[in-house]
Simulated scan of single mutants.
Amino acid sequence: MKNKTLIIFFTTVILFIAGCKETTDEKPILQTNETNKFEKEKKAILTTLNEETKAAFQRDYDTWKSKWVQDPNITKTYINFADSSFSESVGWEEISGFVQNYFDEHPEPEPIPKLLNAINVSLYKNGAWVFYEQQDSLRGLKRETRLMEKIDGEWKIAGMQTTIYGFKN
């Protein structure tokens, strides 16, 4: 009877330890799933940003427009240290009008900057805060911050701040 009790005790301990081991193995799976989800969202954001950039430089208004949230509360700001200029547009109507006027005044496509492959992203449910640097062949170094919103499963730009530093002498 004593041997039977010891066998039951050790079997219970082994099963308990094995059960604990399985529980700790779930964390890496959860972390892997979260990492995969983050990387998937980051890639989708990167695609939106690159497509918006290509459309802007190619003067493709319809594609450019499709990458933006069309809401009265969005903003677009340019700060250009190279020529000491500044512009700010608030709301979709103003931003859209600014871009349409710019395309009308500068109809020739510009060389597309090297497309992004690295961005810094912080995700917040259906929103993201993104920042990166980009070298523009006409304007030099630019640092950009974008506020993104996920609408109907698609990432769109809800805010943009571009700081242009120009070329180093």
Rank of each mutant, 00 (worst) to 15 (best):
A44M: 12
P28V: 08
S87W: 10
D83Y: 11
K150F: 05
K40Y: 12
A128M: 06
G97D: 11
A56Y: 15
T47N: 10
T162G: 02
D62M: 06
L115V: 08
T77Q: 10
K37G: 01
H106D: 05
F103T: 02
M1V: 03
V69Q: 07
K40S: 14
V130E: 00
E144A: 05
T47E: 14
N73F: 12
M160V: 01
Q70T: 01
E94D: 15
L49N: 03
T48R: 03
E144Q: 10
Q161I: 13
D71I: 01
K150H: 04
R143H: 06
T163M: 12
K67C: 10
N3M: 11
P107R: 04
E22F: 15
I8F: 14
S87V: 06
T53V: 14
Q134E: 15
G166I: 08
E133H: 08
T75V: 11
L15F: 14
S122E: 14
D104G: 05
K27C: 00
K42G: 06
I7K: 14
P28H: 08
I8S: 08
A56G: 07
F10T: 07
K125G: 09
W92N: 02
P28C: 03
K67G: 01
E94C: 02
D83I: 08
E22P: 00
E149Q: 14
Q70G: 02
V69C: 07
L6I: 13
D83L: 03
A44Q: 14
F10L: 13
N126K: 05
K42L: 10
V99F: 04
W68I: 01
P111H: 11
G91M: 05
V130Y: 00
V90K: 13
T24S: 06
N36W: 12
G97E: 09
L30V: 04
D25A: 11
N73D: 13
T163F: 11
K4Q: 11
E93H: 07
K150P: 01
T48W: 06
W129R: 02
S85E: 09
W129I: 06
E88K: 11
K65R: 09
F16R: 01
A44G: 06
H106E: 10
Y165W: 12
N80K: 09
S84W: 09
E51I: 04
Y124K: 06
A18N: 05
E52A: 15
E22I: 12
E93S: 08
K21D: 07
Q70V: 00
V90Y: 07
